[in-house]
């Protein structure tokens, strides 16, 4: 592979697959169900302690801004996830502020995890995570439909097996 094709094959020639938009819903549910009760508890405690009212107002406004910002951020973050299966390796790209691209040669994969929490399961989104012998690899693809995830795992496992070698 020469320099020119290596560069252009990124994002252009290859088939990049985005993740399911339902991941946005799943993550927003987690955001709301964690932030709202926490704010309510904090405000309740402050009221009971008789802290000056404007402190509570500031906290409530901050929580609201955090909620809106998180709401918006989740939408953008999920859109930033994409993966691409190439001939010899798998690419995973993610992040808006801190962008990253992970390239894992199939022969280096040690195991492939498929996991889903309760909310994820209810909404039908699954995470596929790749592990290599390096702890820093960190290639996980969240928000796949269960069937897509299972197929991907099987495909990856097969590719990994045929190409695998020692460390």
């Amino acid at each position: 592979m020469d320099t020119a094709t290596a560069f252009t094959s990124d994002h252009e020639g290859d088939h990049w697959v985005p993740v399911s938009p339902r991941l946005v819903t799943a993550r927003r549910i987690v955001l709301v169900t964690s932030l709202v009760p926490m704010t309510v508890i904090v405000l309740g405690v402050l009221t009971l302690l008789g802290v000056i009212a404007w402190v509570s107002v500031v906290i409530a406004v901050a929580a609201l801004i955090g909620l809106l910002w998180g709401w918006w951020l989740i939408g953008r973050r999920v859109r930033s996830y994409a993966y691409c299966e190439r001939g010899d390796d798998l690419l995973v790209s993610s992040g808006i502020l801190f962008r990253r691209l992970v390239i894992v040669p199939y022969g280096r994969m040690q195991l492939v995890d498929v996991k889903a929490g309760p909310i994820d399961r209810a909404l039908g989104v699954t995470t596929v995570q790749l592990h290599t012998a390096a702890a820093t690899t960190d290639a996980s693809i969240p928000g796949l439909e269960p069937q897509v995830a299972a197929d991907l795992r099987d495909r990856l496992a097969r590719l990994g097996e045929t190409r695998s070698a020692g460390l």
């Binding site: 962008r99 691209l101 390239i103 012998a133 390096a134 702890a135 960190d138 460390l167």
Partner: peptide, 27 residues
Amino acid sequence: RTQSVRWTQGPWERFLDLASVHVDTTP
């Protein structure tokens, strides 16, 4: 011995059109 390759770019790096490349090996 390369396990995987990572490319990362923080906001400040992006502003300057810079990026970092990491080669992952065993811990």
